[in-house]
Nucleic acid binder design. Structure first.
Lengths: 247, 247
DNA sequence: TTACGGCGTTCATATATATGAATCTTATAC
DNA sequence: GTATAAGATTCATATATATGAACGCCGTAA
């Protein structure tokens, strides 16, 4: 095993998750790496433009990292399929639309499209992670996985915005309802006052992420017409991915 | 120096720039690394989800890389400033708008906003690189750098779409004209039939990327009203960045 | 089926790296 | 201006890594 490579990635991940530039000492301590070792790795990462170093020395993610990361969307071909559909959704509903996949116990947001015009623009969520079982996109993805697989993708430690713990039993019931309705919701579980509606997209191998929209709870009466639009987009993505929508 | 870290990054960069998943042998040969060494590094990168490995074994950029890379836009604060401005531009002009910075001898595209509705959606360009002296965004950024600095950011080897070589003399003259007008153009130098107009944004330290729009050459008569909109957006970004627009 | 060729994988060893301690630098308080 | 402390950087050495060669695997062709 090449410890320095693993450490380099861990360092990048740590800095990426921090909202502020990090000094060497903080990095070394957080990852339990000797300062001198961290120093060498950081030097190399800076030299390769994967990190940038400010002065006084603090490290942030650099352009090269962005460039490499952007290849993921191109390579997976997701952006080309999902992008136009998100544009359609934001145009029709005037809500922010996004696409997210399950990664570990969290939903990872891959694409976002803000509504046209000068409406509310939610804080950028591309690259963000949120607990899968608290988000509409996460629940939509989980619903068709089967109970055994769900436990692998959920961290029950996480509580929602109202402080309510999530039990497997309760989640299981909600996912059953998601399958029934064809869409999942989140009403303030992540951010109070923000509601989300999402529906899953499938490829030939099964669920592959979900498309969702976010909006102010106060701005809507009925979810049905919104859900219908979201499900239509999700179904279309499913078709493009070569998958089949469940009954 | 930690060669394995540098090699890991080079490997990631190589795979990111390839449009197809790469097998170990191709990677090892391209970077002149022994196969066995490359194998160890690839194993670690896959274990950390920075790469994914298909079967038969071919490597592509993984989700972790995307997640790390997305931190660049958040951290630099660019997306928050530029995003709304791009939205305004696409809304007003119905063209695709983008923001790019100089990186080495190329322009690196950081943000893109497609026009609302079902209009033409240009192929996703986020993360793409194009020669700085052939693109409108590149030329807009170069124009206010000073001739000495320009040579560092330009690779004169690159020819434009019409096969015409670019001399420093000719470029210098064009940049002078860009300074005069306040905006730069690209009329088919990258892609025949596609025209771009861009204007630079400044922060306190100098030029910091450029905002531009792309459209079909056939779809426009006069550049002036388009350029005016682009320059207005660029000026607004400049203000937000704490910079000052030149005379 | 068998032989072949290309690729991926493993392994022992020469070699480069990781690290604790010392040094230097920078920011802060007095 | 000086002292102080926190952090960054350097360096010699113990240790883990990089690598060439050998092996195993899979697809292809005879």
């Amino acid at each position: 095993m090449s410890t320095s490579v693993v450490r380099a990635i861990r360092i990048l991940d740590l800095i990426a998750k921090s909202d502020q530039p990090m000094p060497l000492a903080a990095i070394a301590e957080a990852l339990d790496i000797p300062r001198s070792t961290a120093h060498v790795i950081l030097r190399d990462l800076v030299a390769e433009s994967v990190l940038t170093c400010g002065k006084p020395p603090t490290y942030s993610v650099g352009v090269k990292a962005f460039e490499i990361g952007s290849a993921y969307l191109r390579g997976s071909g997701i952006a080309a399929v999902v992008g136009p559909e998100l544009a359609r959704l934001t145009g029709a509903l005037r809500f922010t639309a996004h696409y997210a996949i399950l990664d570990g116990t969290e939903a990872l947001y891959l694409c976002k499209e803000d509504p046209p015009g000068l409406g509310i623009r939610l804080a950028s969520s591309v690259g963000a992670r949120l607990p899968s079982h608290l988000t509409a996109v996460g629940k939509a993805s989980l619903a068709w996985l089967g109970d055994e697989a769900v436990t692998e993708h959920v961290s029950l430690k996480t509580k929602d915005a109202s402080g309510q713990a999530v039990t497997m039993k309760r989640l299981s019931a909600e996912l059953a309802r998601v399958r029934e309705l064809g869409y999942a919701t989140d009403d303030g579980q992540i951010t109070a006052g923000i509601r989300c509606v999402a529906a899953p997209a499938f490829d030939a191998t099964g669920p592959r992420g979900a498309i969702g929209v976010s909006f102010l709870s106060s701005a809507t009466e009925s979810l049905a017409p919104i859900a219908a639009e979201v499900m239509e987009s999700a179904a279309r993505v499913t078709t493009l991915l070569g998958g089949e929508s469940p009954a």
